[in-house]
Amino acid sequence: MSVVEAPTATVSLDPPDVPSPGPERHPVRTAVMYLLITVIALGVLVPFVWMVSSSLKNNNEVFTVPTQWIPRDFQWHNYVDIWSRIPMTTYLRNSLFLSLVITFLQVLTGSFAAYGFSKVRWRGRDALFVAYIATIAVPWQAYMVPQYVMLQKAGLVNTFWSLILLQAFGAFGVFLLRQYYLTIPDELCEAARIDGLSEYGIYRRIILPLSKPALASLALLTFVATWNDYMGPFIYLTSNELWTVQLGLKSFVGLFDGDYAMIMTGSVISVVPILVIFLLGQKYFIQGIATSGLKG
């Protein structure tokens, strides 16, 4: 009669694998880094603080030396008088209209083009993308005059259409979104094609929902650039009724002097919409920049 021996369990006395801790941060180096970041942040905020302070002063107190950061007498009425001095409501409405329309069109056209350059295979795709992105390096002043002549002959000068058509497409937006689309696995698109989904369906039902951070980043950057644009409206808009807020502020600049307190007041008012939009979309903006290859 044979006896079957039960298998004996071997117990390892080696210590379990413990993930090695990351590099230890030196407290002095960390403190210096945070101090440097704080100094840089304060330096960036100095012009904004000076602008807010100047908006609450009399005109002859704006450029006093040394700089008076806290006004002696706060001129709160500047924020009331500016609405009667210039048609501020009209300027803000025009800026908001152009910014929203151009932002929508740039996000729409940029997302379409980025999908074609990243998820659709066709001959010459990469070469055309490089050529298209290379247009970013061409200064606007090089083709400013031909653009104006073309729009003048088309009868679009002194209309919003001139700015909308010129800024509805942007190579930077295509680059930003393409870099983000490349992080989305191609297997998702292939599986959708096997299931019979069209390219438009893949773009609308798969790519766009996964690209909210990049879309929000492009929308914010485009909105800010359009809102702050001065040269475009200055060249193509001649009627006061079509002026944006950036053009409207030049009404306070005369031939020999300017009402700089009112200019600062209008500048503060013009910054408020951008500040609100950035605070609302800050999460998506940072996430989109961090994942699209544009990290500094």
Rank of each mutant, 00 (worst) to 15 (best):
P7F: 15
T10E: 15
T10S: 13
T10R: 15
L13V: 15
P15H: 15
P16K: 02
V18K: 12
P19D: 14
P21W: 12
H26A: 10
P27K: 03
P27A: 04
A31R: 03
Y34G: 00
L36M: 13
V39Q: 12
V39G: 15
G43E: 04
P47S: 07
F48T: 12
W50N: 07
V52H: 01
S53Q: 08
S55Q: 00
F63G: 01
T64Q: 15
P66C: 05
T67F: 14
P71K: 01
Q75N: 09
W76P: 05
D81K: 01
I82N: 04
R85Y: 10
Y91S: 07
S95L: 04
F97D: 13
F97R: 14
L98P: 06
S99N: 07
L105A: 13
Q106A: 07
G110A: 01
S111Y: 04
S111T: 02
A114K: 09
G116Q: 07
K119D: 12
V120S: 02
V120E: 07
D126G: 08
D126N: 14
A127V: 12
A127W: 10
A127R: 11
V130R: 15
I133N: 09
A134L: 13
A134S: 12
W140R: 10
V145Q: 06
P146D: 06
L151Q: 10
Q152R: 13
Q152V: 13
A154E: 09
G155E: 13
S162Q: 09
S162C: 05
I164E: 14
L165F: 09
L165Y: 08
A168P: 07
F169V: 13
G170K: 15
G170D: 15
F172G: 01
F172I: 05
G173V: 00
V174A: 03
R178G: 06
R178V: 11
Y180P: 11
T183N: 15
I184S: 00
A192P: 00
A192S: 00
R193D: 12
G196M: 03
S198P: 02
E199S: 04
E199T: 04
G201E: 11
G201Y: 07
I202N: 01
Y203W: 06
R205F: 03
I207M: 09
L208V: 00
L210A: 12
P213S: 05
A214P: 14
S217I: 14
L218M: 10
L218T: 04
L218W: 05
L218P: 08
T222F: 12
F223G: 09
V224P: 02
T226M: 11
T226P: 07
W227G: 05
G232V: 03
F234D: 14
S239L: 10
N240W: 08
E241G: 08
V245A: 11
V245E: 09
L249E: 02
F252Y: 07
G254P: 01
D257G: 02
G258P: 06
G258M: 06
G266R: 05
G266S: 04
I269C: 00
I269V: 03
V271T: 13
V276H: 04
Y284N: 09
Y284L: 09
Y284F: 09
F285V: 00
I289M: 07
A290E: 06
S292F: 02
S292W: 07
G293D: 12
K295P: 15
